[in-house]
Design a protein around this nucleic acid. Sequence first.
DNA 1: GTGAAAGCGCTAACAT
DNA 2: ATGTTAGCGCTTTCAC
Lengths: 344, 344
Amino acid sequence: MRSEDIARLAGVSRSTVSRVINNYSDIPQKTRDKVLKIIEQYHYEPNTSARVLAGKSTSTIGLFVVSLSEQPGVNRIYQNNYFAPFVDAVIDTANAAGYYVLVHTIYAEEDFAKVKQAFLQKRIDGGIIVGTQKNAELIGGIARIGLPFVLIDYDVADILEHRLSDSPITVVNSDDYEGAMAAMNHLISAGHKEIGFISGHMNTYSGKQRFRAYEAALRTHKLPVRPEYVLNGRFLKQAAYEETKRLLKLDRLPTAIFSANDDMAIAAMNVLREHGLRIPDDMALIGFDDVPVAAQLIPSLSTVRLPIYDMSKEAVSRLVGMFENGAGTLSSVSFPTSLIIRDS
Amino acid sequence: MRSEDIARLAGVSRSTVSRVINNYSDIPQKTRDKVLKIIEQYHYEPNTSARVLAGKSTSTIGLFVVSLSEQPGVNRIYQNNYFAPFVDAVIDTANAAGYYVLVHTIYAEEDFAKVKQAFLQKRIDGGIIVGTQKNAELIGGIARIGLPFVLIDYDVADILEHRLSDSPITVVNSDDYEGAMAAMNHLISAGHKEIGFISGHMNTYSGKQRFRAYEAALRTHKLPVRPEYVLNGRFLKQAAYEETKRLLKLDRLPTAIFSANDDMAIAAMNVLREHGLRIPDDMALIGFDDVPVAAQLIPSLSTVRLPIYDMSKEAVSRLVGMFENGAGTLSSVSFPTSLIIRDS
DNA sequence: GTGAAAGCGCTAACAT
DNA sequence: ATGTTAGCGCTTTCAC
């Protein structure tokens, strides 16, 4: 069933059918109804490829989830409490706004070709990229294609430095520094003087900010910054697990641990439990993200809440805004986090 | 940049460029290399719409997540431990097989139009649908379009009845009946004689099978089937929460509860805890699905494991198989479940 | 208000 | 082995 068939059945020309489909104003209600009736009756839907080729938009948003991890297969997003909500929230809000979502996961450096490909092949009107490590070359490469895109969790300064401020890029961040600072201040106010840190990935913006706040908080309160208390977690459960085990072998332990995300905090929790340490009595613990399980655990996990749904929604609506207002230039937003004190 | 530009730059015709791109055999290595070099150099990627319009496939799989729930907004998939893994696993395996995935969520009856639309508009080569309630009309409607698709969790008998066995449909199920039976037998062997049930959605295949096994197990062992012990959960956390509260108001309580999924079992756990009941001493609890949190809870939740990753992978590979072998007819697989005994 | 016709970027049958 | 050409199904400019 093609538009020509509809035209014949309705006794009009293909152009009239097209006008009806695209809601042209200069077409009498009578003709419109007649055509619409046939379309309805035959369940006709215009061929997307043909429409796009003729100049229409794809009504499709690309969503690229970047999760580079050294151990392949270990950080699949469906086991990742941070990415999964983004995927779902973006799909939700994009669908509600009338867009299809093309999702692609990037687990290896070479898969990045796939994101440029999706843009270059004109499969999408624009994209949302979450989880990118600092990589101006990549961002520049995509920007050069000219289609708008949104980066979730990225350092705006890095984009500015590479003179990309005229490109249609939107950056959506959370106030990671402030959130981490709040968590640290809470621990310090509670009297903790020896605080450990499980770091995220230092090449991501959020990972960096959370670490910076950790250090700054200690310095501000003239507390010791001990290298052996900084665990290299890279946002990975497994790494956090190993590193926490290593920490417990030290002669002298911190009394609290601040983890750059909840997944790693939970891994640490398991290690602590295995070693017979009580939480929070022997070791206080604060995570980051407020993943759904955090509240379910016993003891429930104190954490810094990230407004993932709002961030995703904003990413979609900004992207759609760029479609409608014709590209635009660099812009950014940052969402406030909130400290959630629970039992840990 | 179009194929014509590449042709000009390489000093050949557009058809030669096309032949190179599509790996035709009758083209000398020298010409191939020359063209490839230009393509590389200019980062050329053929326009997908044009290729599809000219008869190529889209290399895109549609993934439709159906989650009809009475309370809108309450059952978003990112809070749903059952759907999220399917989404991620399908994306993972499809991407690995060289396919893009177009994901759409269906939260209301009228959104079903979107799935037929995606097929009709030729946006996808085929689709995977998870979470459908029994609805032969819908299935028949999609089948009539002629593109292959996979149903995850659907009653094969229903498809047979509606004479759809010649359509390119694959059904991927899990052994829900057997799994539920194993859980029930475990409880019964442990001496439980009064067993409650939190039901899933009776219109889904898995929901139905899990309930059937519950009843059958009780009957087989000549144990009482008490209507007041059957809670109407519809796979929803909230409903399970309310219903469990209702259950606890009864004069006489069961000593064990079997829940049709883990999310509801966890909701029940919370209610039990709030009422000061100990698990498993005062009330034993077994869930279904083995969602990631199940193992993290205290007490950890005994459950029936669903091989979601394998099911998703099979769904993708069967779909791709139908693409390659030209449609085909109805087929189905069912995956074994396994009883995971933990502390609850 | 509506139709005719050109063109979007590609593939593939046909011709050489 | 490579070029020429006719579509694929739609949108849109230009005529009428």
